[in-house]
Computed example of a mutant assay.
Amino acid sequence: MTNVLVLGGTGMLRGLVLRLLEEPNEVFVLARRPEGLRALSEEAQAAAERLTPMALDYHDLDRLGHWVAHVQLMHGPIDQVVAWVAGDRNQVLSVVDTEIYRYRHSPWDLFDIHGSRAAMEPRPVPQLHDNCRYHRVILGFRVEAEGSRWLSHQEIVDGVWRAMAHPEKETIVGQVLPVDLRPPSD
């Protein structure tokens, strides 16, 4: 059984959480809004014993660290993290990495999800422990006959799922070029 932590798992990554629960995974979901977690828990009722939801703002770094430590004390070390983090992602990822390192010295995978701008504005890889295998996943857009559009939630889920199944240092879901075809931001 794989222990998977999903940061931001009630929005566009909701379908990924449900897909992870189709496999024999323990899934720990952290999100700010309790109502999103309740809805996710209801939808995942058949696998409720393998889903641990937590309403928490991941920018509250002390609470985040305590929760990640608690999860590992109760369920064992985390094997994979999928993180869709807004704001200062490096601090958030550093806290998660530090807490995982306390319980796990063998390799684990971090899938850091970024919007399409990350392809044009490369960011340095956060400082992480050596046992963390860092994977950057960039979400792009689709160009169709009638114009360009952002990826659907299902396309995002499928793309992140593929990135997790075949981990590379960087995976682009959809396309990010040419830049002038990017759809307008909402």
Rank of each mutant, 00 (worst) to 15 (best):
M1H: 09
E144I: 09
R89W: 12
L73F: 03
D60F: 04
T171P: 02
Q127C: 04
V160A: 04
R38I: 14
R123Q: 10
L16S: 12
E168M: 06
G87F: 05
R149W: 04
H66P: 03
A163K: 01
S148A: 11
R32E: 11
P77R: 07
L20R: 12
T98F: 02
A44W: 10
G76D: 05
V81I: 07
T10N: 13
V173T: 08
E35I: 12
N131L: 06
M164F: 00
V92S: 03
T10G: 06
V68H: 08
L73D: 15
R136D: 00
V17K: 04
G15C: 14
G36D: 03
T52Y: 12
I113G: 00
Q127D: 15
N25W: 00
S94V: 09
R19G: 08
W84R: 04
I172D: 00
P178R: 06
D112L: 02
V71G: 07
S116W: 08
V173C: 04
A83D: 01
D158C: 04
V143C: 09
P178H: 13
R89C: 07
R136E: 14
R19M: 10
P53N: 06
L16A: 13
L177F: 11
A118T: 05
T171F: 00
D109P: 06
Q91G: 10
S106F: 02
V95N: 05
A44P: 13
P77F: 10
S94M: 04
Q91M: 08
I138T: 05
V82W: 03
K169Q: 12
L7G: 02
I172G: 01
A163W: 02
G8N: 09
L128N: 07
V85D: 01
V157K: 08
V179K: 11
A39D: 10
M1R: 11
W67G: 01
H66Q: 13
D112S: 09
Q175V: 09
A46F: 12
D158Q: 10
W67T: 10
N25F: 01
E168P: 06
E170M: 15
G8T: 14
A46S: 13
H129N: 07
G147R: 05
S106M: 07
Q80S: 01
G159D: 06
P167G: 14
L139P: 01
L40M: 06
L30T: 12
D180C: 10
R117A: 14
R89Y: 10
G8K: 05
